[in-house]
């Protein structure tokens, strides 16, 4: 119940976007229509436990109602831990984790992604690692390890392979990050 002075947002369901669920299916959330909103996934979801408004079950509900704008304006999907508790517990094999990912794929195409995600994507392209600390060389050396691990950061040819793959994916057409021929030196 509302106390005096409190407001709430009315969601106009008739403004829902028809075909949203179909879009989610194409983006990898293939079994969304199997959801019966039982809430088992929500009962295990860290997003729900931490107090995010849109956890698995509610994201599915919003998609089924066509509420794309609502989801695009909310950060919850990006806080999904990809922990797969929901996928483990769903009695209908909906794979809610994949639906969270599919929703992110839709959001990315509307450029509705947080700066931290862009940073990780750029880092994956530039050095082959989503998490990278250029100052890690010193602590590594102190531990007796080579300054660079034997990965793409120490191997320009290997990095070129990863970049070549990434340039053939939809990341290249989205323009979220600069992807010149020569990696970090490109434009």
């Amino acid at each position: 119940m509302l106390r005096s002075g409190e407001t709430f947002e009315i969601i106009n369901l008739s403004k829902g976007e028809a075909g949203f669920a179909e879009e989610i299916k194409k983006m990898g959330g293939e079994r969304i229509l199997e959801c019966i909103q039982c809430g088992k996934c929500a009962a295990t979801c860290p997003l729900a436990l931490a107090g995010f408004p849109f956890f698995n079950k509610r994201v599915i509900h919003a998609i089924l109602n066509g509420l794309k704008e609502v989801l695009l304006n909310d950060i919850s999907i990006w806080a999904c831990q990809s922990c797969n508790r929901c996928t483990e517990t769903c009695p209908r094999r909906v794979d809610p984790f994949e639906i969270m990912m599919a929703m992110r794929r839709v959001a990315v195409r509307k450029y509705a992604l947080p700066a931290t995600a862009i940073k990780g994507i750029k880092s994956l392209y530039d050095v082959g690692h989503a998490v990278y600390l250029s100052e890690a060389g010193e602590p590594r050396k102190k531990l007796g390890l080579p300054e660079k691990p034997p990965t793409t950061v120490a191997d320009p040819e290997a990095l070129a392979e990863v970049q070549s793959i990434l340039r053939k994916t939809s990341l290249a057409t989205l323009g979220i990050i600069p992807m010149g021929e020569f990696g970090i030196f490109g434009i």
Partner: peptide, 20 residues
Amino acid sequence: LEGQSCCPTWGTMPSIDPVG
């Protein structure tokens, strides 16, 4: 496994393009 890269993790390609 010289030349290995990121797995890649969830916030990157899984959130953009499954085939990638």
